[in-house]
Design a binder for these strands. Structure first.
Length: 467
RNA sequence: GUCCCCAUCGUCUAGAGGCCCAGGACGGCGGCCUCUCACGCCGCAAACGGGGGUUCGAAUCCCCCUGGGGACGCCA
C-alpha cells in the first residue's frame, strides 16, 4: 500500500512554524516511504479564508523546499460532494435536522457550564418529530453520534486513546446555508484522497474521535492518525496568530537557510539518539513516527541560529551569494559592480564563520564597499594614534613594493614590517584593521587585504597617512 | 467545569528495569588558539516535580497528588 499523507492548512492566517513542522513531518514520512505528500487548502470558512493566506502558505512551503505531489486541493471546491454525503447520511437516519438558533445554543452551553457540565449540544432535535420544525428557521444537519460505548483511536504517536461516546455530542455536518463544516469535509476528503496517514497537531486529537465515528457511519476506513505535540511559545502556551507565531517568511527575511530550519524543526519532538546535525537526505532515511515524542516543545531561537550558523559554514557559495548580495545592495541603495562582486566573493570564506545568518554576512561585508575616505567608528578611531599612523606609513610602503598580492605574501610582508619596526604584529594589524574596515572587528586582516585588492588597500592606508 | 494528553539540565532531547551518583546539543561560565571578533578545541556548573507502591534493583512499570498543555463553535 502506498503511503499518502497530506498537509491541510486553513488559509485564515500565515504559515507559522507549528504548521511548518506538521508539513515537514508529513513530507518526511511520505518521502521516507516513497509515497505521496498532498496539499489540501481547507478554505471552507468563507469568512476568514483569504487569497493572501493561500499565497503565503504556498510560498512558505516552497521556501522550506517541501514539494507536494499533484495540484493543491481546494476544499471548498468540493462542497457539493460533501453536502451530498451529509444528505446521504440524513436519508439513512444517521443524521438529522436541528432547528436550534445560535442564541439557543449559546444559552445551552452557558447553562451547562454554570452547572458544571461539559458545554455540549444536548441532542434536543435528535429524535424530535420533523413536524415540530419551526417554519422560519433553516436547519443545520447534525450527525447522529453513538451515545454509548467508546471510541478508540490507535494513534501512531499517542498510542491507544479512548473516550466515552457519552462525551461526544452531535456535531454539525452541514450549516444552515448548506455549506459543509470542517468536520465533514476532512472526513470526505481524507477518504476521497485515499489518505493513509493523517499527521497533524495534537489539538486535533479530540477531533479524531468524532471523525472516526463519521468514517464508520459512511462505512469507510479512517486513516492512521498521528497526533504530534504542539510547539509552544517561550512562555509555554500554544502558538497562535497573536502569540509569537511568527510567519515563516519572517525567518527567510532574517537570513535563515531552509535546510537549517528543517533540521531545527525536525529535532523539535523527534530524535535519533544524540544526533543533532541531520541534513534532509539523512532525515528522509531515518524518519519514522515511532521516534516522535509526546510532550510539547518550546521554540528556541538560539538553537535555530546555531544550526543556521553551522549550515552557513557548509553551504555552497552559490546559494549564499544571491541573498547576501541582494541584502547588501538594498543597504547600499545601489547595485554592486564587477569589482565589488569579486571582493565579496573573495571575502566570503572569512565572513562565513563569523555569521549566524545571511544578514550578518551581508552586514559584515559592508566595509568592502564603503566609499573613501572611510569614517572610523569610535573604537577604531582610538587605534589610529600618531604612532599607529607612522607604522601604517611603513607597512604602506612595504605593501606598495610587494610583488604578489596573495594571503601568504601579505602576511609575510606585514610580519616583516612589524619585526623591522620592533613591534608585535598586533600593533600593526589593529591600526591596519581600523584603516581598512573602519572598525575593530573584521575577518582576518590578511583576508581583508586580499579581498580589497592592492589599489584599495593602499588608498585606504593613504587616507590616514597622507594628511 | 468536563474530557483528553504531557512531565529528565534554562531550552531541545538520549534513556524502552541493572550499562545512569543520568549522555548529547543550544545557551551560560572558565580556558586554549589568536592580528580583532568569530570559528575551532578543552573544561565547569546545570535535570529524573512530589508521595506511595511493584521489584533483589526504577529516570524507566503501577497509583495518587501537583504542575503544564489541548479540546469542548453553524472556526479549522
Amino acid at each position: 500500500m502506498t503511503v499518502i499523507t497530506r498537509f491541510a492548512p486553513s488559509p485564515t492566517g500565515y504559515l507559522h512554524i507549528g504548521g511548518a513542522r506538521t508539513a515537514l513531518f508529513n513530507w518526511l514520512f511520505a518521502r521516507h516511504h516513497k509515497g505521496k505528500f498532498l496539499l489540501r487548502i481547507e478554505d471552507t470558512d468563507r469568512e476568514r479564508s483569504t487569497e493572501d493566506a493561500v499565497r503565503a502558505i504556498l510560498e512558505g512551503l516552497r521556501w522550506l523546499e517541501l514539494d507536494w505531489d499533484g495540484e493543491p486541493v481546494f476544499q471548498f471546491a468540493r462542497a457539493s460532494r460533501h453536502a451530498e454525503i451529509a444528505r446521504g447520511l440524513l436519508a439513512q437516519g444517521k443524521a438529522y435536522h436541528c432547528y436550534c438558533s445560535p442564541a439557543e445554543l449559546t444559552e445551552m452551553r452557558e447553562r451547562a457550564r454554570a452547572e458544571g457540565r461539559s458545554p455540549r449540544y444536548d441532542g434536543r432535535w435528535r429524535d424530535r418529530d420533523p413536524k415540530d420544525a419551526p417554519p422560519d428557521i433553516k436547519p443545520v444537519i447534525r450527525f447522529k453520534a453513538p451515545q454509548s460505548g467508546e471510541t478508540v483511536v490507535e494513534d501512531l504517536v499517542q498510542g491507544r486513546v479512548a473516550v466515552a461516546n457519552a462525551e461526544l455530542d452531535d456535531m454539525v455536518l452541514l450549516r444552515a446555508d448548506g455549506t459543509p463544516t470542517y468536520m465533514l469535509s476532512v472526513v470526505v476528503d481524507d477518504h476521497d484522497m485515499n489518505i493513509t496517514h493523517a499527521i497533524r497537531g495534537d489539538d486535533h486529537l479530540t477531533n479524531a474521535f468524532r471523525q472516526t465515528q463519521l468514517f464508520l457511519a459512511c462505512d469507510w476506513q479512517p486513516p492512521r492518525y498521528a497526533h504530534i505535540p504542539l510547539i509552544h511559545g517561550a512562555d509555554g502556551a500554544k502558538l497562535s496568530k497573536r502569540h509569537g507565531a511568527v510567519a515563516l517568511d519572517a525567518y527567510a527575511t532574517l537570513g535563515l537557510l531552509p535546510e537549517a530550519m528543517r533540521n531545527y524543526l525536525l529535532r523539535l519532538g523527534w530524535s535519533h539518539g544524540d544526533d543533532e546535525i541531520i541534513p534532509t537526505q539523512q532525515a528522509i532515511q531515518w524518519f519514522g513516527l515511532e521516534a516522535v515524542g509526546r510532550s510539547p516543545a518550546r521554540f528556541d531561537m538560539e538553537k535555530l541560529l546555531s544550526l543556521n550558523a553551522h549550515y552557513i559554514k557548509e553551504a555552497d557559495p552559490k546559494i549564499l551569494l544571491p541573498p547576501v548580495t541582494a541584502r547588501i545592495e538594498t543597504t547600499l541603495g545601489r547595485p554592486l559592480d564587477t569589482t565589488e562582486r569579486a571582493r565579496l566573493d573573495a571575502a566570503l570564506p572569512g565572513l562565513r564563520p563569523r555569521a549566524q545568518t545571511m544578514i550578518e554576512i551581508a552586514d559584515g561585508a559592508l566595509f568592502l564597499f564603503r566609499t573613501r575616505p572611510l569614517t572610523l567608528d569610535a573604537q577604531a578611531a582610538k587605534l589610529v594614534s600618531a604612532e599607529a599612523r607612522r607604522l601604517l606609513g611603513l607597512v604602506g610602503q612595504a605593501l606598495a613594493a610587494l610583488p604578489a598580492w596573495d594571503n601568504a605574501s601579505l602576511e609575510a610582508c606585514v610580519r616583516t614590517s612589524a619585526e623591522g619596526a620592533g613591534v608585535k604584529l598586533g600593533a600593526i594589524a589593529q591600526p591596519l584593521r581600523a584603516a581598512l574596515t573602519g572598525s575593530t572587528v573584521s575577518p582576518g586582516i590578511f583576508d581583508v587585504m586580499a579581498a580589497l585588492g592592492r589599489e584599495e588597500v593602499l588608498a585606504r592606508i593613504g587616507d590616514l597617512t597622507n594628511s
